[in-house]
């Protein structure tokens, strides 16, 4: 089966068997290893990527379902100037510890902030209910969201 889709803006064409997950295709076929596998059952959110702007758990998302779609992964966030405002806010707030869940959090929050540029705390926490971080206890991740919103408002 042939899969044609765009990943971080680049057109890609792959020959697949059909049963592959989007996560495996990204990691194994496209060498985009920034997206992580934590549980393979859609529970931890470490594998979150965007499919046409919507956050999905790529570990339980059939790659063939991404036919003609636009995929965004953590590798697509930074700009030519360096980290984007959300990534920067994570760095400055201490929202990163071990970093294994971080790509999933960044993609989930990217989807949230695209839809709601000024989410309140409840919206942020609801959006993060499918992403597990074992290191931070979440406070500095939530702070990073607030910092990012402030920064984007100034810009």
């Amino acid at each position: 089966m042939e899969l044609t889709f765009k990943v971080n803006g680049h057109p890609e064409r792959l020959e697949l068997e059909g049963h592959e997950t989007l996560l495996d295709v990204l990691r194994d076929d496209l060498n985009l290893t920034g997206t992580k596998e934590g549980c393979r059952e859609g529970e931890c959110g470490a594998c979150t990527v965007l499919v046409n702007g919507r956050a999905v758990d790529s570990c339980i998302y059939a790659a063939m379902a991404a036919q003609d779609m636009e995929i965004e992964t953590v590798e697509g966030l930074a700009t030519s100037d360096g980290l984007n405002s959300l990534q920067n806010a994570f760095a400055e707030s201490g929202g990163v510890q071990c970093g294994f869940c971080t790509p999933g959090f960044l993609m989930m929050l990217t989807a949230l902030l695209d839809k709601y540029p000024h989410p309140d705390r409840v919206q942020v926490r609801d959006a993060l209910s499918g992403n597990i971080c074992r290191c931070t206890g979440y406070a500095q991740i939530e702070e990073a969201v607030e910092r990012c919103i402030r920064q984007r408002t100034i810009e």
Binding site: T33, G34, F90, A91, E92, T102
Partner: peptide, 24 residues
Amino acid sequence: ENLVRTDAVGKLTGEARYTVDYDG
């Protein structure tokens, strides 16, 4: 001082290499 951790950029861009990312 709240210095940013030195491995933050790698972990925020997906460049950081964990064992599972080892390939060859």
